[in-house]
Design a protein around this nucleic acid. Structure first.
Lengths: 205, 205
DNA sequence: TAGATTGTTAATCGATTAACAATC
DNA sequence: TAGATTGTTAATCGATTAACAATC
């Protein structure tokens, strides 16, 4: 029986399960078990079963899980059984790399618009997309009902840009600027700062 | 009294505290409190005090914390009161962006060598660095006693490259490939996969 | 001093693990 | 059937919070 309240930490592990299942499927593996999956991911089998049990029953006793089926169920649960349009704000080196990255589309996301506040960049094309002025952000977001933004601007501009996003109707922000954004409680924000990841390891060296 | 066993989850928050303290210092703020810091970071004041108490006593009752002093203590604890040489493997769009990124140096890291298995890229320069052949990885790592690697190669090559890193003597890996690496227990690995971060949010949309 | 804030303890809360009946 | 593995419960483990004496 799926429980009503699902811990964030459980939801946070599902994308990792999904990624592993997609790889298994790509390898042609059709059935797996909580033990096999756990071994691959460095997670206990009990935890995987417990996590999944929040959302339903996906396996068979004695057999395990059908890889394709479980993958599809996780896509549904995470709502990536569709394609989310995403705006990318900040087209420096990192923004360009993200704009070129081909790994978003088959995992549920597509960058559909690029923005930068540098008038020299506005009008340039990257692939099929033209870099647009920040002044047009709100209109684009509203017209296309976009809910997800990636922010790849310098730290000094990130807070302001995040607020512009919220004002435009963006609901989820992936922030690449090395700064903690101050946004209303309940706002969906994820941070990617490579240096904090490196610093998490050096303590142990 | 600092306790002997410090939870990973506590160490994981210290880089975020450090980043905030560095920003406070840059703003010219000299003193802060666990409440102020917690408000900025969306973390409870009690948790910040508890986390810090694992490592010593850094504050003054009635006053709070000296920003510069606490920042320096966190740098020491995280061992980023020095400059770690880092190798970057994989010079595609993302690798190039990382190679150009100026934000590593003043936070404890410097990319000192670039590697790629594409012979067309080997010999090219990016800034002051020349892209080197993967065959020279082990020699460079050993000669310069490098312990940290960033991997920005396609998913299909990441596992093999990670093993080459381990064999060469690398102790900590920051992996940008969208795959969970299988490495010996206790190996220091951090993953950055923007799609998993996005997928953590869409469930709630 | 009076007010504020630390460091720490104890209580609470939540997450992980172990174990096992159910069953494929 | 015999062996294997699920989903779930209860026990354990660990992390967070609340509270407060100490003290700047």
């Amino acid at each position: 029986m799926p429980s009503k309240q699902i811990p964030d930490i459980v939801v946070g592990r599902l994308p990792v399960y999904l990624r592993a299942l997609s790889h298994l499927a790509a390898e042609g593996i059709q059935v797996t078990s909580s033990h096999e999956l756990g071994k691959r991911l460095g997670i206990s089998a009990a935890q995987i079963r417990k996590d999944l049990s929040h959302f339903g029953e996906f396996g068979k006793q004695g057999t395990g899980y059908n890889v394709g089926y479980l993958r599809d169920q996780l896509k549904r649960i995470l709502k990536v059984d569709r394609e989310w349009p995403v705006v990318l704000i900040g087209v420096g080196d990192l923004g360009r790399a993200l704009a070129h990255y081909g790994g978003f589309v088959d995992r549920g996301f597509r960058i559909v618009a690029l923005f930068d506040n540098d008038s020299n960049k506005v009008g340039q094309r990257i692939g099929e997309l033209e870099i647009m002025s920040m002044e047009t952000l709100a209109d684009v977001v509203r017209e296309r009902s976009i809910q997800v933004a990636m922010i790849a601007v310098p730290a000094a501009h990130a807070q302001k840009v995040a607020e512009q996003c919220m004002a435009a109707g963006i609901k989820a922000i992936l922030n690449y600027a090395p700064i903690t954004l101050s946004l209303p409680d309940g706002t969906l924000v994820q941070h990617i700062d490579p240096v904090t990841h490196l610093q998490r390891m050096t303590h142990y060296l």
